[in-house]
Amino acid sequence: MTTSTTKIRPDLAICEHCDSVHQRLPLERGEAADCHVCGATLYRRPMLDLDAMLALTVAALIVFVVANAAPLVTMESGGNTTRGWLLSLVATTWTSGVGAVSAILIGTVFLFPLAQILLYFYVLQACRLKQQASRFVDAMHWLRRLRPWSMVQVFLIGTLVSIIKMSHLASVKPEPGLWAFGVLTILLTALGTFELRELWALHEEAANT
């Protein structure tokens, strides 16, 4: 091509935190290469293979459904029983005039985690079947953008704090939905350890063979 002199250097890795250049070395499973200048992780070879990751994704989807279908907590006081689901939290905050809180809830605890799980399924399946997926690039960009905005683990701790707070006032009981959120936190964290940059490389290999 005459358009540019851009060359790809797959033999190198550049630290995204300090811009220092490193030679890429082959890693053992579960190993990570750290930047020798600033200490950030440069790249890693994941512990789990694609099949195991896909299994985790399917498990996360099932647990996500349970977490949202089952109530999180019940509260009893003076003969009244109130149950709280995630979506009822979204509804009450909306009707009590704090729409922004409602939007944060439905985005960071419902829509973004769900989108993350579905997108992971799509990109992992594309890599596993060695298929050229048409929306792979878009899916990968969305996975990267969504990552910081998915807050299931923060929601879990926030809910626990709130439950302990209320236990002084009334009898509050954790329900299956809360346990499901606990499991979902673990599964999403495990999925998060899979470097998206490795998936880019894997998919490129698959597309070239």
């Binding site: 939290l89 009450t92 809180v101 709130s162």
Partner: peptide
């Protein structure tokens, strides 16, 4: 640590949902 401060927002959402006993509280 960026998103951990959202904790209080979620805690308030749950409190608001569970505590409404009509006229009493």
């Amino acid at each position: 640590i960026g998103h951990w401060s959202m904790l209080d927002v979620f805690a308030v959402a749950l409190l608001v949902t569970l505590v409404h006993f009509g006229a009493l509280a």
